[in-house]
Nucleic acid binder design. Structure first.
Lengths: 237, 237
DNA sequence: CGGAGCCAACTGGTCCAACCAGTTGACGGG
DNA sequence: CCCGTCAACTGGTTGGACCAGTTGGCTCCG
């Protein structure tokens, strides 16, 4: 039995979480004004600065638009929020009016992973290719411990994405893997088959090392293919 | 001649920008502590609260890790920052130690656009398909005004991504198009050929309407292909 | 001399209170 | 009826005080 560190949420973190959930869940319609900072402060029973810090974060996520003198307006997050919004929605899936987020993340992972493998085979430096080979090696040695294999798998993919030389892919990879959401929280059994396939991973690494771009792309696509059998749903639904 | 609204940056915005540039440009190494909030406040000549708001935003971007009692540490943004970081790097490309960001964004756009078109052809609702057809229509009517065509093009792609039913793609699309960076700031001549190809757009729309997933994917991929001739560079380099 | 414990001096977190600076809308005079 | 004025909002900024957790040196005991 291991103990996870106790999560300590500061006041402004909690305010942020509440407001984020309220906005994402659709409690406010687009362009609807949020209560004033002073009002929110009294409602939550906290200081106005805490509310302000939370609002700044919401603003940066693209959930609200604040303007001096005028009220803070709620935005339509479907058209203004960035991918990092998914990062912050860790345990808040109850609120999200979207049941397919898990599947969506897997689809995006497959799409980007395949193209990253292609680009990596195309233009990775020799050092990067060696790093990938080493990562595959470590991955093989981690078997059959699923936790360690998962970590090694993430590490391997990170190196592939790095090897692609595409910063946007790298940042998107971070967005997808960060947060408890994303790949980590996907039911383990769905990824078991993928994780146990050491041979396929080794094959992918060799294709990249050989510079076979189409082959690497195909191998990555096969490895990351999203199962279509059961829907991915929040466990608490 | 049109006048753009004057950008008014609040104090905490400017502090945020300075600190973000400092971190992203590599002035601090990973795990290196940032000056204390009080120190930064005196350095910038602003109140501590403004510094705090800026730091919270940096924290959310994944650029720093703050912990009560301990110093605020700088993180390695290449492994912790999300895709939204690209959004905020609008005019700050001078600082970024990455010359390929423009190309990278285009590559990612092509990758996601193609898969979104595929999924859209696969599972979009009839209403969504009609919306796409209407968007193509509006796009055709916007010719030959490049600005209007660009806007109509973005609108069309938004509807395609929406039709794919993949929230992650939608958020990533927002991240890629938001900010002055991204597609908007790519030198116009690189996109002219793509924008003028009304026939290809119409073709893509029809493939989606017909539910031809492989065809739609191929058409989208051809339309969004990244030219390999010249490197995309920041204009000021 | 080595180690355990304490404590001062940091760090960030929160609060209060006041004032500045824009926006909005109602109200009154032309 | 229109237009300027102005009060009553909104967010933006400041100063200062105190709470809370971390860190590292320093003392004291073994």
């Amino acid at each position: 039995m291991t103990f996870d560190p106790i999560a300590r949420h500061s006041v402004s973190d909690q305010v942020f979480g509440r407001l984020r959930d309220a906005v994402v869940s659709g409690r406010y319609t687009a362009e609807e004004p949020l209560p004033s900072e002073r009002e929110l402060a009294t409602l939550f029973g906290v200081n106005r600065h805490a509310v302000r810090e939370a609002l700044r974060r919401l603003q940066q996520l693209g959930l609200v638009r604040v303007s001096q003198g005028g009220a803070t307006k709620v935005l339509d997050w479907r058209s203004t929020a960035g991918l990092d919004l998914a990062m912050t929605l860790a345990g808040a899936q109850d609120v999200l009016p979207v049941a397919t987020l898990g599947r969506d993340v897997l689809e995006m992972r497959a799409c980007i992973g395949a193209d990253a493998a292609r680009l990596c085979a195309l233009r990775a430096e020799p050092a990067a290719r060696e790093a990938i080979a080493a990562a595959v090696e470590a991955y093989g040695k981690a078997a059959p411990d699923l936790d360690r294999m998962g970590a090694a798998d993430r590490d391997l993919w990170r190196r592939i994405v790095e090897g692609s030389g595409n910063i946007a892919y790298l940042l998107a990879f971070n967005s997808l893997t960060a947060g408890t959401l994303a790949i980590g929280s996907v039911p383990a059994h769905r990824r078991t088959a993928e994780l146990l396939d050491v041979t396929a991973h080794r094959n992918l690494s060799e294709l990249i090392a050989a510079g076979d771009a189409p082959g690497a792309e195909a191998a990555a696509r096969a490895l990351l293919a999203v199962p279509v059998l059961d829907e991915v749903r929040s466990p608490r639904r």
